[in-house]
């Protein structure tokens, strides 16, 4: 099967006054049509930057310094602004963290939905409204006809996120990038939204890139995982393999740090130390100062991704 999306050696840098920061250091991953992938890592690992760089929307001092983003056979990282606009929101949609903020407070839901359609497709207002109602039904918003005339503040948080999802579905995209879509919601709503997203991805055969630090969410939704650390992918593989048998010490740490019901009352595990600042990444393996298995070689040579068992790991332990 042809790949839907292939990210090749993507390098993203930020030109700051104090020098250039490398936020993404040559990451590689690919996605088949309808495939769901999780991008996991701590804050500052470069997950969101990776998501935004796919649709070339990195904010100002940031820029794509190298690599390719091949979507449906074309390198869209070289597209100009107009070409990119025809991809954004049309073939690739994005869902953000906070549904309170992503909807414009002074426009009705209907306006915001039909506007998206009219911007991308040739159709009348009536047709657009019909599709909007269809999409609201898909995300289980009751009485969508009256809801269309309401403003964002008349909805609850979970409903708003469902509306955001409905907006991203309008143009029947091939790929949805969800940047921590449930972080701003409480746990019960989280489950509801993730179930909905999963159901829609399967039904509409959409690809999904789920950016999150919540391994629990990823394990239930995605088919494969890429674990990121300091702008690099340190481990890739099938979701089940990584959750049950993590290779990289960092992934092992992340999984150990998950709260588990059978260990009630115990202190949660923490990976010692913090993610290094991007302008002072340690030499060799960027994880070695925090790693419990470090060897001499770790501080000298940076490991590259190598196939181990069914997945890929960047760690000297498996050399």
């Amino acid at each position: 099967m042809d790949k839907l999306l292939e990210v090749k050696d993507l390098v993203v840098k930020f030109a700051l006054r104090t020098g250039t920061l490398t936020a993404l250091n040559g990451i590689n991953f690919s996605l088949l049509p309808g495939e769901r992938m999780g991008l996991v890592g701590e804050s500052g690992a470069g997950k969101s930057v990776a998501g935004f760089s796919i649709i070339n929307l990195i904010s100002k001092p940031g820029f794509i310094a190298g690599g390719e983003v091949i979507f449906e056979g074309e390198d869209i990282s070289k597209y100009n602004f107009e070409q990119m606009r025809s991809i954004r929101g049309n073939k690739i949609s994005m869902i953000f963290q906070d549904p309170m903020m992503t909807l414009n407070p002074v426009l009705t839901i209907g306006t915001q939905m039909t506007e998206t359609l009219l911007a991308h497709k040739q159709m009348s207002k009536e047709e657009a409204t019909e599709i909007a109602i269809e999409c609201l039904k898909k995300v289980y918003i009751p009485s969508p006809e009256t809801r269309l005339k309401q403003y964002p503040h008349e909805f609850s948080g979970g409903m708003r996120q469902r509306i955001v999802i409905a907006i991203s579905l309008l143009t029947t995209p091939k790929l949805i990038i969800a940047d921590e879509p449930t972080t701003a919601l409480d746990v019960t709503i989280q489950a509801e939204i993730m179930d909905l997203l999963l159901e829609l991805c399967i039904k509409e055969k959409m690809g999904l890139i789920l950016i999150t630090h919540d391994l629990g969410v990823v394990s239930q939704t995605t088919q494969k995982i890429a674990v990121m650390y300091a702008g690099r992918i340190v481990e890739k593989g099938k979701t089940l393999d990584i959750i049950t048998n993590p290779k990289h010490p960092y992934t092992q740490g992340l999984i150990k740090a998950l709260p588990q019901t059978h260990k009630k009352g115990e202190k949660l595990y923490q990976i010692p130390g913090i993610m290094p600042n991007l302008n002072q990444i340690p030499s060799g393996c960027p994880f070695h100062p925090r790693c419990t298995f470090k060897k001499d070689i770790c501080s000298q040579i940076e490991p590259s991704l190598k196939s181990v068992d069914k997945g890929e790991v960047a760690c000297h332990l498996y050399a």
Binding site: R85, R88, G89, M94, Q97
Partner: peptide
């Protein structure tokens, strides 16, 4: 974010 969302929509 709604401005960013509008950019993402294209």
């Amino acid at each position: 974010e709604y401005v960013e969302a509008a950019k993402v929509i294209g």
